Computed example of a mutant assay.
Amino acid sequence: MEVDPWRFCRDGQSWETRSDVAAFPRLTHEFTQGTLICRVVGRVDQRGSLSLQLTVSGKVELPCQRCLGSMPYGIEVGRTLYLARNEAEMERLDALPDSDAIQAGETLNLVDLVEDEVLLSLPLAVMHAEGECPVPGAQ
């Protein structure tokens, strides 16, 4: 899903999908199964800054790093990302409290954006709690 990010925000457009993780190529390497509900809304704030409000939620299955068995995991991502035209603008926006900025060009792939934010939200090592691995001897 490619959009003009500047027009997307100025016009207050939105994109929503409820998809199996198989619809997200990079996420299929992390999750064995699951469904994600994604919403991206373009906005203009009081200062005239353009931003994307991104929310992703869902239940997925990840491989446990301890036993390699399947483990349920809840995804909850909520981010506001301000659009920057260049590095200087990105630094200025990142300096604002509770602000994250991305450098945007003429087009932005919303699937890639969702994948990036979900991957950044994952813990480094996903494991069942101590004593909960279903595979004997994996403790």
Rank of each mutant, 00 (worst) to 15 (best):
M1T: 01
M1D: 00
D4P: 00
P5G: 02
P5K: 06
R7T: 15
F8Y: 14
F8S: 12
F8L: 11
C9N: 01
R10G: 00
G12R: 10
W15S: 13
R18K: 14
S19V: 06
V21H: 10
P25W: 10
P25I: 10
T28I: 11
T28E: 11
Q33M: 07
G34Y: 12
G34M: 14
V41I: 15
G42C: 04
G42S: 03
R43M: 10
G48I: 09
G48D: 03
L50C: 11
S51P: 02
L52M: 10
L52E: 09
Q53R: 05
L54S: 01
K59P: 00
L62T: 00
P63M: 11
P63F: 07
C67K: 12
L68W: 00
Y73M: 12
G74Y: 13
G74H: 14
G74I: 11
E76D: 11
L81D: 06
Y82I: 08
L83P: 03
A84H: 01
A84L: 03
R85I: 02
R85N: 13
E89R: 07
R92L: 06
L93Y: 07
D100V: 08
A101L: 15
A101W: 11
I102P: 07
I102Q: 04
E106H: 12
T107H: 06
L108Q: 02
N109M: 06
L110E: 09
L110R: 05
L113V: 02
D116R: 07
E117M: 01
E117N: 08
L119D: 04
L120N: 03
P123M: 02
P123Q: 02
L124D: 09
V126P: 01
H128M: 07
G131M: 05
G131H: 08
C133F: 14
C133Q: 09
C133P: 10
P134N: 01
P136A: 14
P136F: 02
A138V: 07
A138L: 13
Q139V: 09
